[in-house]
């Protein structure tokens, strides 16, 4: 009897937990006005604010799913979604090749530079300094938006080999590069400038070479073919870039945004 009691107790707890968990879940019910936006984790702060604003103004719920640009793309290929906002337009190109994109709008220009510890104790000023023996460098893998940019830019400057010799680690995303420097595990790395305000123990060095670089890196929002509600999705995409709506929020968070049109329903 006792064993039966334990079993029933377990099943009871199981049922209760499931109920508490799922009573507010809608399993992709189409009658609820809702959009799924898959967005690069580095853009979390502004996009969250914009999504909340849109929910208030237009009454459509925006479910935000955060992750690395490439990882999100892999997921979308398999499971589909409404909107995709990676940190780098190259992912949109890849998605377009796969026939996944219905429409896309550029959101923000990202410019790269060197992240260093606050106060610049090691006096790091140029790309050349990254080849110094006393500077521990961290860069992102080629698979990350910023990593691709970093490798190309260093190659063009003829410094790639020299920098790679002194590299202490390669990491997967731009956030990890910034994190390493912010925690003091590395002395310098190459990141998007928009990240800097979030990392309090670090500062940013502009690299003139980068600004003239032909590599135009753009965060781009795309409406996906797999969306069952493309009109609604496009409306949010327009909201996200509208000069008096989303663009304003991006600018507040330190992103360099192209001047879009004013918002109209």
């Amino acid at each position: 009897m006792k064993k039966l009691g334990i079993l029933l107790g377990l099943l009871g707890v199981l049922g209760l937990c499931l109920f508490l968990m799922l009573n507010d879940e809608n399993f992709g019910d189409d009658s609820v006005r809702e959009l799924e936006l898959h967005v690069a984790a580095g853009l979390q702060k502004p996009v969250e604010e914009i999504a909340r604003q849109y929910e208030d103004e237009c009454g459509v719920k925006i479910m935000l799913n955060f992750g690395g640009s490439g990882q999100l793309l892999a997921k979308l290929e398999v499971a589909g979604g409404d909107l995709y906002l990676p940190a780098d337009a190259s992912y949109v190109d890849k998605a377009r090749e796969q026939g996944m994109i219905a429409e896309s709008i550029p959101v923000s220009n990202l410019s790269a530079g060197i992240i260093i510890a606050k106060g610049n104790p090691q006096n790091i000023k140029t790309l050349q300094d990254l080849t110094r023996d006393d500077v521990r460098v961290v860069i992102a893998e080629r698979t990350a938006g910023v990593g691709k940019f970093t490798h190309t830019a260093l190659e063009n400057a003829g410094l790639l080999e020299a920098v790679e010799n002194g590299i202490i680690s390669k990491v997967a995303t731009v956030n990890e590069v910034a994190l390493q420097v912010d925690l003091g595990a590395s002395d310098a790395g190459i990141v998007w400038d928009a990240l800097i305000p979030q990392f309090k123990q670090s500062e940013f060095v502009r690299v003139p070479d980068f600004d003239q670089s032909p590599n135009q890196i753009q965060a781009t929002i795309s409406v996906l073919i797999s969306s069952e509600n493309k009109a609604e999705a496009l409306k949010f995409a327009r909201f996200l870039v509208a000069s008096d709506k989303g663009a304003k929020v991006f600018r507040k968070h330190g992103f360099d945004v192209q001047a879009g049109d004013q918002w109209e329903e």
């Binding site: 935000l64 799913n65 955060f66 992750g67 997921k75 956030n175 994190l179």
Partner: peptide, 24 residues
């Protein structure tokens, strides 16, 4: 399950999201 706030966010996801925005 995704890292969707208010839907599929568990604590390990929260940690990831906070690190993503530099909120160590």
């Amino acid at each position: 399950a995704g890292a969707t706030k208010g839907r599929t966010e568990v604590l390990s996801t929260s940690v990831y999201l906070e690190i993503s925005t530099g909120n160590i």
